[in-house]
Design a protein around this nucleic acid. Structure first.
Lengths: 342, 342
DNA sequence: TACGAAATCCTTAACGTTATCGATTTCGTA
DNA sequence: TACGAAATCGATAACGTTAAGGATTTCGTA
């Protein structure tokens, strides 16, 4: 007994006018009398009329929907990004369709096609770690659908991007340890892919060189999964060195807190014996004991900026389809948050 | 110079056949010859034809999209739920449109209308704390759009629900403290709304009564925001009591870890002096020091179950519109995860 | 009174797809 | 050869909406 949806047709019939007039009345066209406008609106309210956005999208250009593809959702950083995106989208009257790539390039391709099929007005994406080639973006390029990449981007792909300066972040983190008096600074780094961890590693080395502290490869350990357990284990290895480090820069807060607990379990004290700096300023950095000094990564702002950039782009292309498109790259600032671990 | 989208019309023209035949060929209708089917499919591949799902949705019933409304996204539990939902939806060929209520009832209403307008096939929702009345769900009821409520539900609203037994969870948590030898067990509870914290409080009391330990109101503190800082502060108050507690059951892991750090900062030891149990099994419970004993709340499974229930419902109603609908309430199991804090 | 401008509403067509039914062709069989 | 069943394809209409233009009415002014 599913009731049929109220359409303009119903309103028109009840009022003895045509669908066109109803449409115009609801959209406040000047060629409709005040009287009918009122009648139409009243009845629309009464019947709880809701426009069928599918039909609208079919008729006019633009679906007022943007697609978002991220590698995973159970991640403090991405949750924040999504939050930023959704709030801006809401403000500008756009819906957000979220798709997960699960860090697989195959999946990423599938989701792009699906979003294209849904006629999204634009796509925001943080690339899967696995993603090397960019051919699955061709369809978006070809149809002139705006793309904004954030966080995990591809250097060669020409589009708007929102990122942070990982090199600078790593540099600031390491420099802070140096300022705290550390002489032997270890780094628990991430994998070669994505580029973020490479950048942080670069920054770490740069700060060492600048301070005339030699770079010692034996003080660098590499994670695969970048989680708490790896941080714990790799830190234990660092502690076994003949001369253990007096400072550690971890590629993420998870890894940093893992290291922190490994040190405590080994009977050493943080920050007295060893100081630690993490990366991201996620929740666990605030609640560890002692709380973790870290580099704040502005997830919410990244989301907001990306959404604004995309929507701006969408509306510009709609207004002026022949506009010459010059891609921007926005680098948001990170900053150090000093806490008890240093 | 936006290229126009390839439609069936293009394929038809190039092949000298009609749109109808193209449609049938692509959908493998029996009344199309093998030869044309092959030709159509080849050209469709070549031109990278992607069906316009808006047009399809307009024509056939069902948009293959489900709406999801949650209070907030930056929350470990909800991220997990979303993950469960997305994975099941993906498997069954549904898209997920996520909307945030920001814990406001006004916003919730707006999002429901928006989802209705988008012609979602069903809605999954975890209610905003603020939400008391249910009239904004009328439009979904009226049009027979399936609704699944999870986590934060309304008792009087008749629909499919997926929840956990908070009373039992609280009971198990408190009982565990009793088994560990605690005699004075405090509880840092959540607000009166949503009902979850009330249930946990009930369970706490039940376990006390059963063990012949008197319920002492002075051992119960109430949070408003349910975060780390509140846990820290309220625990400090508990420590100031003439006879401090020897066990604490916290309504959430955030609060639990806050309490844990307050105890450590006061120079006491966990679990030797005071034992703590949290609730949810979020990430911070695993990485605190010592790691927090907690009640595992199966977010991922809640998401999966909810999505399955909804999709099942959607497909059933499509097949048999007159099916008599009997709502189910699924209660998922929680269990204690023993860690270092007890 | 009569003409034309202004106001108001409607007709038509279109967006892309698909279900229904009708039209045509092919081909086997009596 | 002729009839009809089977195979193959197309014309039409419909989903709900809106833009462009046409049709009608109203009304002021010469």
């Amino acid at each position: 007994m599913t009731r049929h949806r109220i359409t303009m047709k119903d309103i028109a019939q009840k009022l003895g006018i045509t669908v066109t007039t109803v449409s115009k009345a609801l959209k406040d066209y000047p060629d409709i009398s005040k009287a009918t406008k009122i009648k139409v609106r009243q009845l629309a309210d009464e019947l709880q009329y809701q426009p069928d956005s599918q039909a609208v999208a079919l008729r006019v250009k633009g679906s007022k929907t943007i697609g978002l593809i991220i590698p995973e959702i159970v991640h403090y950083f991405f949750s924040n990004v999504i939050n930023g995106i959704m709030n801006q989208a809401e403000l500008k009257g756009y819906r957000v369709l979220i798709a997960l790539s699960n860090n697989s390039m195959e999946m990423e391709k599938k989701q792009i096609n699906l979003l294209f099929s849904t006629k999204v007005d634009g796509v925001m994406i943080s690339l899967a770690n696995e993603t090397k080639s960019m051919t699955h973006f061709d369809i978006l390029k070809e149809y002139d659908i705006p793309v904004v990449m954030f966080d995990k981007v591809n250097e060669d792909f020409d589009t708007n991007k929102v990122i942070i300066d990982d090199v600078k972040g790593g540099y600031v983190a390491c420099k802070h340890l140096i300022m705290c008096g550390c002489k032997r600074i270890a780094h628990i780094r991430g994998p070669k892919n994505p580029l973020n961890s490479v950048g942080r590693f670069e920054g770490y080395k740069k700060a060492l060189v600048e301070a005339n502290i030699g770079f010692d490869p034996s003080l660098v350990k590499e994670c695969m999964e970048v989680n708490y357990d790896e941080g714990y284990q790799l830190c234990k290895e660092l502690l076994k060195l003949s001369i253990p480090p007096d400072g550690i820069f971890a590629v993420s807060d998870q890894v940093g807190v893992g290291a922190l607990n490994a040190i405590k379990d080994a009977g050493l004290k943080v920050p007295d014996d060893i100081k630690i700096v993490g990366f991201s300023d996620s929740q666990i950095a605030q609640v560890s004991n002692p709380p973790l000094t870290t580099i704040h990564q502005p997830g919410y702002e990244i989301g907001e900026t990306s959404a604004n950039l995309l929507i701006e782009d969408i509306e510009l292309r709609k207004k002026d389809p022949d506009h010459v498109f010059v891609s921007k790259q926005i680098i948001l600032d990170t900053h150090l948050i000093k806490r008890g671990s240093t």
